[in-house]
Design a binder for these strands. Structure first.
Length: 143
DNA sequence: GCACTGGATGTTT
DNA sequence: AAACATCCAGTGC
């Protein structure tokens, strides 16, 4: 099923009503239904750590960001900032698990599977403001 | 303030 | 043992 989100075309692959994988295809040039925020995800096959991180990340609302370190702590694994980065890097559910809202402690955006430019555009579309390369501090989400 | 460094860190494979 | 979408304290502009 195809949706749009923040000007991007998004492909959602489901089986029996459960989302298996999401991919961002590129610019949405046609009118498509908006991506629903609540979808049931297939979280089988993930470790307890990965599940905790993804579920906590879903709490970050549009227009806010968390850092890898604050997300690690909120998920119950203080100090696991780098391991959180590992989870985000393999996130099969971009946008629904909003890994684009997780940034570095110095407020630079950090990595993104589709590149830093896409990450910045998603954040800007959600209302996040930047000062140069960095997200402005008031946009930090407190869990 | 900026840029860079080296070492520590937690989890996965 | 190695990899990693990080962090922090230190150093020098």
């Amino acid at each position: 099923m195809l949706y749009s989100y923040a000007g991007f075309k998004v492909k959602v692959m489901q089986e029996q009503g459960v989302v298996k994988r999401i991919t961002i295809l590129g610019e949405a040039r046609e009118v498509l239904p908006a991506l629903p925020r609540s979808m049931k995800l297939d979280l089988s096959g993930f470790t307890p750590f990965e599940r905790a991180v993804m579920e906590k990340a879903r709490e970050i609302p549009p227009g806010k960001v968390a850092t890898y370190a604050t997300l690690a702590k909120a998920a119950g694994y203080p100090g696991a900032a780098r391991a959180v980065g590992n989870v985000m890097a393999k996130n099969p559910f971009p946008i629904i698990v909003p890994c684009h809202r997780v940034v570095r402690s110095d407020f630079r955006v950090g990595g993104y599977a589709y590149g830093g430019e896409v990450k910045r555009r998603l954040l800007r579309a959600e209302g996040v403001a930047f000062a140069g390369e960095r997200v402005k501090k008031p946009y930090l989400w407190n869990f």
